Amino acid sequence: MQIKTQRLKIRTLQNSDLNDIFDIYKNEETCKYLLHNAWNEKNKNEEFKQKLSKQSLEKDFAINLACILDDVVIGEINIWNIDMKDSVEIGYCFNSKYSSKGYATEALMAIVKSLFMNKKIHRIQANMDARNLVSAKLCEKIGMRKEAHFIKDFWNKDEWTDSFIYGMLVSDLK
């Protein structure tokens, strides 16, 4: 998958992206609401290798996409099938150095449109820690609606957390 937006290039992760992806995931604050802890020098190669090994929309695999600005990977978007026909979940993480400039919105809108128009996806959803209000706001900005707020439903990093589920159909595109 390769997409070009006004300012970004979006393509499948490559070996050469390791250091830029590490720059995203080494940040404790960035990983606060993710399912994994921040990466470190000891585990970065193994973590990245796992991302590269799973590059298809098959069960238990994801497509991992690099969002590139001026030859620097500033974010990652992940897409994986869920157990429903023509439905996917998306996840995303962007380098905090590039926040508040609209890059995540631009990238996600392009991905969502491509999934609906080119891949004929019926439904896209995003699940997140309910404390991640920046992520929730991003979902709303691209036209997703909050469909659920589950209370203390997910055990992560030694605590029960609430979660939000956002969803959208092609008819929700702005």
Rank of each mutant, 00 (worst) to 15 (best):
A136C: 10
D60L: 15
A130S: 15
S87P: 09
Y98G: 07
T105I: 06
N118Q: 10
G143A: 04
T161S: 12
L35R: 15
Y98V: 05
H122A: 12
T161Y: 03
K51Q: 14
S96I: 14
V73Q: 06
K119A: 09
D83S: 11
W39R: 01
D162E: 10
K137N: 05
F48C: 09
M117P: 04
G143P: 13
M117W: 06
L133A: 10
K146F: 10
L138W: 07
N132K: 08
K85I: 04
A104L: 09
S163T: 11
V88R: 01
D153H: 14
S135Y: 06
L52M: 04
L108R: 04
S53V: 02
K101M: 14
M109S: 08
A136Q: 04
V112T: 09
L69V: 00
Q55N: 10
M109F: 12
A110Q: 02
A110F: 04
N127W: 07
G102W: 01
F116M: 13
A136Y: 05
S100P: 13
K54N: 10
D162M: 04
I111N: 00
M144N: 11
V112M: 04
S56Y: 09
N64R: 07
V72I: 15
A148T: 12
W39A: 03
A107V: 00
D70H: 05
A66W: 04
G102Q: 10
A38T: 08
A148P: 11
S56A: 09
K32A: 07
Y103Q: 14
W160H: 10
G102Y: 04
Q125Y: 00
G75E: 01
D60K: 15
L108E: 03
I142M: 03
Y103A: 07
F116E: 06
K137E: 06
F150K: 12
Y33C: 03
A38Y: 03
I68C: 02
F61E: 09
I79F: 00
L35D: 15
L52E: 02
N37C: 05
E41F: 02
Y98A: 09
A38H: 04
G75I: 06
S99D: 15
C67T: 05
K157P: 00
Q55T: 08
A130M: 05
M84G: 05
D158T: 06
K120S: 08
E89K: 01
A66F: 02
A126L: 11
D86Y: 12
I151K: 11
N64E: 02
K113W: 05
I77F: 00
I142K: 04
E76A: 15
F164I: 07
F48L: 00
I68D: 01
L138Y: 08
K146E: 12
